[in-house]
């Protein structure tokens, strides 16, 4: 019988904006790197995102936002991650997030924030290197 761990990753778009070009390119690159990518489409509430991560038992959540609402939505998402006990899930983010907001976002527990112009290979590599340990 096969005993193989696959990396499962949720690419989620909180906020009302519809700029999914980046999220989809990243999703595709991660898939091509051999991961199972769950994509839930646009405009997901923090509740939907975290509940999806729970049901899908993903290793990683990647958030993409370009609407400027990250300061309201990210804290809520991280609060729910904590609340639902998803302690073995790594969260990273990308989109338009001003440099000066980055420390605040990282303090919430978001491991990394990728700005515009990040090569996809860098994100793929980051995911491989920061995969949460699970036995």
């Amino acid at each position: 019988m096969q005993s193989e761990r696959k990396i499962r990753i949720l690419i989620a778009k909180p906020g009302l904006d519809s700029h999914d070009r980046g999220a989809k390119i990243v999703a595709r690159a991660l898939r091509d790197a051999g991961m199972e990518v769950i994509y839930t489409g646009l405009r997901q509430t923090p509740e939907q995102i975290v509940e999806t991560a729970l049901q899908e038992d993903v290793d990683i959540i990647g958030l993409s936002i370009l609407s400027g609402a990250h300061k309201v939505l990210f804290p809520r998402i991280m609060e729910l991650v904590e609340q639902k006990g998803l302690t073995d899930v790594m969260v990273f983010a990308g989109g338009i997030i001003p440099e000066e907001d980055v420390p605040e976002m990282k303090k919430l527990g978001i491991k990394e924030i990728f700005g515009p112009g990040t090569p996809t290979e860098k994100i793929v590599q980051f995911v491989f290197e920061n995969l949460p340990e699970r036995t």
Binding site: L16, D17, S67, H70, K71
Partner: peptide, 15 residues
């Protein structure tokens, strides 16, 4: 959505 819709949180006037 109106500005007081839950979906609008954090998005009112931002973009």
């Amino acid at each position: 959505y109106d500005s007081d819709n839950p979906f609008s949180q954090g998005e009112v006037g931002t973009c």
